[in-house]
């Protein structure tokens, strides 16, 4: 329990300092920071519609960061979730389009999306586990392969003949998640993510032998190897699972929100997921709260930008500062403890 409070402290401290630093940007550009944060909060939780929109935004981030948490816990830095998400969305869409209307279309499309993301992640996973090639570089470069390739597919061979934009045809209605709350975009995929996937991942990470292996490899690969754990295989599976969840997140966006595959399916959820996995300190419960938090910041910032005439970019800035502050929080906590400013 002590560990839990410590993690919570760290996260809150990082958030508080990041807000303070971001205030400097607001002041520099002549906006009142208090008003800015008020509008961000209002834009995220102001009424029922806004609250559901925050959950709509939080869902892909939750799925991506749950997957990344497993790989980060293994000290495998998968920064390719963005590409894995795109590939999952694309493969899922193709599956849905080729199956047409049927009672199994949705389920099978989701499975294909998961497989797509997992397969895409298996390339850098193989290179890391077998050849020892730094996964940070390969996963990131593969984002560009995936996104450029999909842009090409949607602009030429797979372009829908009915529209002017580079996008796929509309998926069959049996591949679409039903809406749960009328007159909002709150779809079934959100409930599946928070009520099924989240507990499953919690169970996988905290209660299974595999979860233990991941932790052991992350903490000390040499000791894990002595203990009889197949380090390469653990790394491979951890990275592939994170790709699978990113792929799922991608198709959930198609099935729940867009109804078509578009080259703009993700405004960087794969990168936001990195921040959230770190902010949630690889704990699924922490990650759930952190995803809602960052979704609120993203949605609230667009309201705030409109009201205060602020340019875009604040969201990325806050995310960068947040990561640094999470890294620094241990140091700051230790300093505060030494000065006896907080209770031990």
């Amino acid at each position: 329990m002590m560990e839990f409070y410590k993690s919570l402290y760290r996260a809150l401290l990082a958030i508080a300092i990041s807000f303070a630093i971001t205030s400097i940007l607001f002041v520099l550009t002549g906006a009142n920071p208090f008003l800015a944060y008020y509008y961000i909060f209002f834009g995220a939780f102001g009424d029922l519609l806004l609250i559901t929109e925050t959950f709509v935004r939080a869902t892909p981030i939750l799925l991506v960061s749950l997957g990344l948490a497993i790989s980060f816990k293994c000290k495998v830095w998968n920064i390719g979730a963005e590409g894995q998400l795109y590939i999952g969305a694309m493969i899922g869409t193709l599956a849905a389009l080729s199956m047409g209307e049927s009672s199994l279309t949705l389920l099978i499309s989701i499975l294909f999306a998961i497989l797509g993301g997992a397969a895409w992640a298996s390339i850098p996973a193989f290179m890391k586990a077998r050849l020892g090639i730094n996964e940070v570089i390969t996963t990131f470069l593969m984002n560009y392969v995936a996104i450029n390739l999909i842009q090409w597919l949607l602009a030429f061979p797979l372009k829908s003949p009915e529209t002017l934009f580079p996008e796929s045809a509309r998926i069959p209605s049996s591949a679409i998640f039903p809406i749960i709350i009328n007159h909002t975009r709150f779809h079934l995929g959100i409930l599946i993510s928070f009520l099924i996937i989240l507990p499953l991942m919690y169970f996988l990470m905290m209660k299974t032998t595999f979860g233990f292996k991941v932790k052991a490899v992350g903490e000390n690969p040499e000791a894990a190897r002595y203990g009889g754990i197949n380090v390469g295989r653990t790394i491979f599976i951890a990275l592939v699972i994170s790709g699978a969840l990113a792929g799922m997140a991608g198709f959930f966006e198609v099935s729940g929100i867009q109804y078509r595959m578009r080259p703009t399916i993700s405004p960087g959820y794969g990168y936001t997921g990195i921040v959230i996995a770190l902010l949630g300190q690889n704990n699924p419960i922490g990650i759930a709260f952190a995803s809602i938090f960052i979704a609120a910041i993203i949605n609230g910032s667009s309201t705030m930008s409109r009201m205060l005439n602020q340019p875009q970019g604040i969201v990325d800035f806050i995310q960068g500062v947040l990561i640094i502050m999470i890294l620094l929080s241990d140091m700051i906590l230790r300093y505060l403890e030494k000065k006896e400013l907080i209770l031990r």
Partner: peptide, 29 residues
Amino acid sequence: LNLNQVISGLAINLLTYGLCLYFFRYTFS
């Protein structure tokens, strides 16, 4: 400060992306 090199590098990438986007739009609104 001896922080994790991989994560610090990624953090600076996000930070600079945000800063450039923000100040570019601010300067040429």
